[in-house]
Amino acid sequence: MAIIASYEIRIITDENISWRLKKLLPSWDILPVNEIAPHERLSDIRIWQFAKANGYSILTFDEDFRELQNLYSFPPKIIWLRTGNVNTKAISDLLSRSRNSIVQFIQDYSLGVFELYL
């Protein structure tokens, strides 16, 4: 099995995902949405446009991004957490366990949405 470099995972976390995830996964390139525009609330379409322009995937609980993808295709790719209301540590653990699958998803140009379940 090939060694997968951590920089291959670049994700923007949606507003409802804690910025603390960045601290729990320090080898990942995680950009909390509030770091893009610290003093304003970005619309989903602006998050989408930023992710597309800067090579990020979007990590979200919300179906809204999937609907944007249905309209505009991809990139950006969507990592859709289908976990219900869980804490940041549970999200971190799920992402860590799914790391290789996430990298494969990001590298697969035929897929736009990756759903993660607990």
Rank of each mutant, 00 (worst) to 15 (best):
D93Y: 00
E40A: 14
E8I: 00
D64N: 08
E67S: 14
V103M: 03
I3H: 14
R20E: 07
V33N: 03
I91F: 04
A5G: 12
E67R: 15
A53M: 13
I9L: 15
R41V: 13
R97D: 11
N54Y: 08
I30W: 04
S57G: 13
V113M: 05
K52R: 15
P38L: 07
I11Q: 05
Y109L: 14
I78M: 00
I102T: 01
A51R: 07
I3P: 04
S43F: 09
A90W: 00
L24Y: 01
I106N: 04
I3A: 11
N70A: 15
T88G: 02
E40G: 10
Q107T: 12
D108W: 06
T60M: 06
W28E: 01
Q104N: 14
V33W: 00
F105P: 03
K52S: 13
T83S: 07
Y7D: 15
F105A: 03
N34A: 05
P75W: 04
D93N: 12
Q104T: 13
L81Q: 10
N87C: 08
L71D: 11
I78H: 03
S73G: 14
N100I: 06
P26Q: 09
P26F: 07
N70S: 15
L118I: 10
E35S: 09
S43M: 12
Q104D: 13
S98F: 02
